[in-house]
Structure formats: C-alpha cells, structure tokens
Design a protein around this nucleic acid. Structure first.
Lengths: 253, 253
DNA sequence: AAGTGGTCTAGACCACCAG
DNA sequence: TGGTGGTCTAGACCACTTT
C-alpha cells in the first residue's frame, strides 16, 4: 500500500461526476497544491484501485488522460510521476490571463475601457454565426502585469446566452473567469497571427513604433452556438505563446 | 449491420500495433480519402464491434481519442459523425508544411539554402541540451506554395541521433517528413512569437518592409534528448496558425 | 422500444524495469 | 522475481435520442 493515500477523499459512486473525472481532479488538486511536487512518484494504478475501490480500467483512463494533458508522465515498468516542466501558456487550454500572470509571480490588474451593447457588424455577424445582425455585448479591456500592459482584450459576447455579462465588474474578475463559471465550452477555435498594431493599440500596450503584435483570436461554442469571440492582442516584444506536450502517440498527419 | 463495413480490413491481433490504434487509423483513412465525407455518420460502436470482432471498450477508446483530436464528433443517443470543419494547421500536431499546403490545394516546393555540419553556439547548445558544444547538422530551406514563399525553415539536428540526416535531399522530402519516418517523438515544445524579420529573412520570404513575421520554434525529444530544434518563420501577411478543438472535458486551469 | 454513446467492472495477458 | 503500466475482453447499467 501507499502512505500517500491515507487521506484520499472518497469517490462518490452516486455519480454527480464520472469516477475517472473525480480521480483526475483528485490528482490535479494534489499537484496544484504542491503536495505532490514535480518528479514525485504517484501511487501506482493498483494502489489507487485499492485505495479508492474502483476498477483498474477507470484509474487507467484517468491517468492516461492526465498524461495526454502533460500533467504527469508514465514510464512502463517504473511508475507515474508528476511532470517536471511547469505549465506554459498553452493554446489548447482556455487560459485566464490573470492566472497566467500570477503563476509567473506577477500581479494582474485590468482596466476596463468599455463595456456596452453594440450592433453586430457584418463581419462579426458572420464570425459569431448569428444569421443576421443582432445586438451583442462588447468588452474592451487592458490587462497589466504590474504596471506593464500585456494584453488588449476585445471581446464580443452573445447576450442571449450570457444575459448578465454586461452587469459584471471586469476590473475584479476577468471575462474568461466569469464565462468559465457560467458554462463549459464544448468547442473552441484559436487563430494566431502576427500583425502591426494600429496607433491606438500601440499606445494602449505602450509599444515602440514599428514593433509587431501577436494576436490570438478565440471563438468558443456551446451547443453549437458561438458564445464569445475574443481578440487578444499582445506586444510582440514582451510575450510569446508556448506549449509543451508529452504524448503516448503523436497526432501527426 | 452496416453496409459501410463490408470491406473493412481485418484487425491484426498479432499486435504489431495496438488494436485501438488500428481502428483509429482505419477510420482516419476513410476520412482522409474522402470516402466518409464531413457530416457522414460513422458505424456505431456495436457495428464496429461486430465487424472487427473486438471488444466495445477498445472501439470506444479509438473513437473517443478521435473525438479529442477533433476528427469526429459524437452525440449521445444519436451516433458518431465525421467532423464538419476541415483541419487547420494546428500547434499540437507535428505539421508537415508540404502536407498542409497540398491539403489546401496548393503546390509545395522547397529550396534548400544550405545543409551542413556546424559547431553549436552556446545558445543552441543550451536549447538542445547538449551539455557542451558539439557538432550539429543545420538545414536552411525555403518552402513555397506555388511561387509564393511561405516558410523559412532553420533547423538543427543532433547528428548522434540522426546520423544520416545530412545525406538527404530535402528538395524532394521535407525534413519533417524525413524525421517522422525515423523516429516517433515522445515530447515536443512549441513557442510562437511575433517578430520583425531581418533583411535576409524579409527578402527570402519576399515581404514588404516593416511587415512582421510569425515565428514558431519547435523542439522535439526522444528518450529525453533533443533530436531537433527548428525555427519556422512565416510572413505575417500570408499566414496564420489555427486550431480547433472539440472536447469532452475542457482542460482549463 | 430500440439504438446510441458514456461509463464501469473484474478479470486477464503481456512487456518493461528494477532488484 | 515482483511491481509497473499497456492493452484487451465480455459483460453490465445508464442516459440520451429518435421512432
């Protein structure tokens, strides 16, 4: 048996959540809290089977998915270990800029430029798959790391799906965090471009002339409808996107 | 039963490859070939179980992973369907520029600028985790879509791990394709930046002055060692990176 | 009611790694 | 040799969707 397992929360079979997800969350919590630091050996599948009284296939699925997500790595014949590398800003994760900044030891602050109801332009109507022009909420905000502007956020939100979006105070909660609290996206799309900022963007991000920006656009779907379309613009001098993956089987095509 | 299944290749139990992978590949081939177009309903899990004589859990794993990869989508109670959206250049896939161009209907051509053995600079020594400076292979090439330069590739390769790299003709096979044929990476790292190109890069990519580039750097590991470190530079005016994901459970943190 | 996918079980065999 | 993860099986129950 494994001493680490003494205080494991019980797994609920009354399934508010599938068991494999409960196991994933349990392991994630241990890792996030620092209780299991990088390199730490995890309990074996059999340990978990015994401690939680579930089937091995269920444990295996949980650990396999954590591997795919880069949180742990597994060595055949040896065991499972907390992944060495810290998490990067990743394109497949729905990254909350505040969490990202704070994880790197910075202080996040947001300044809301505007939060209003606007009428969708043809381009935005198309992007949000509205069928015809309709009112939308629009948020514009600058996110700072300390005193340094790091991201200009320009976001449209479908008011049918998120009616209370416009009432929020986005200087204390990021839009990403608010939206994540409201729904679980079932699909999203990212695009990354290099652009030259217009004058206003350059000033808001306090960039020197001629420097490029990294621009990430993200659309998020729920039940086949676009909930939000966000354009996130970063100063090229001060930001890069990164991701690191460990895989069982590479998805190459 | 399902008429689509008549001509299914048999699944080999003598396991050169796990069965769930054989099933994934089988479905991928049908989709890639266009035999199963977007929106097409797939055989149900039970159909596949019967046709291939495997267990349902195995079929389920194959289809679940294809869902995570965005190739199909599944609706509880309804069935599985080929995903609507074509594939994008994705940051989690090891993308071969030639395949990407040809998938979009273009013609790929590569011009090798140089392929030589060089001594690693301190920065590259660090990036490739060599411990101390050592000889490396270095490839520089431009990739064209038709007549339009689309990517400048600058790549270092560890000669201990890929001794024959320098003998290849990279005007007919891309480095990515060659390397993928030689080994299966078990880890990789991507970073994306917006930069201003130097004069040489600008000319090679035939860009107008002042325009930014999207720069992707990629490191690939095998057995804990860096095999290759590539810097891929794209003209910002003509290229964007994109990815779309369908998920069961979002990886948000 | 019938078909579908989502999940889970309790076994099993194997390949890999350490001592 | 014993522990580990990788895979597979043949069932099962359930929730969801359509007929």
């Amino acid at each position: 048996m494994n001493a680490m397992l003494d205080s494991f929360d019980d797994i609920s079979r009354a399934a508010p959540e599938p068991i494999y997800l409960q196991i994933k969350n349990l392991v994630e919590r241990r890792i996030d809290s620092g209780e299991w630091p990088a390199g730490q050996k995890l309990p074996s599948e059999n340990d978990l089977v015994n401690a939680l009284d579930v089937s091995r296939m269920t444990v295996n699925r949980a650990l396999r998915e954590l591997t795919q997500e880069g949180l742990i790595r597994r060595v055949h014949g040896l065991g499972s270990f907390v992944a060495e590398k810290p998490r990067h800003a990743s394109l497949i994760e729905l990254q909350d800029i505040a969490l990202e900044i704070e994880r790197d030891g910075g202080t996040h602050r947001a300044r809301v430029l505007s939060l209003e109801s606007v009428y969708a332009s043809p381009a935005v109507t198309e992007l949000m798959q509205l069928g015809e022009a309709a009112p939308l909420y629009r948020l514009r905000a600058v996110h700072y790391r300390g005193d340094e502007p790091l991201q200009l956020e320009s976001r449209y939100v479908n008011p049918d799906l998120m009616p209370r979006f416009i009432e929020q105070d986005f200087s204390s909660v990021t839009a990403t965090a608010y939206l994540l609290g409201q729904f679980k996206p079932d699909e999203m799309e990212h695009r990354v471009r290099a652009i030259l900022p217009d004058r206003q963007t350059r000033e808001l991000l306090r960039m020197s002339a001629g420097q490029p920006c990294l621009q990430l656009t993200r659309r998020t779907w729920k039940d086949g409808r676009v909930v939000t379309y966000a354009t996130l613009t970063y100063p090229g001098e001060r930001y890069e996107l990164g991701a690191r993956y460990a895989t069982d089987e590479y998805q190459l095509r």
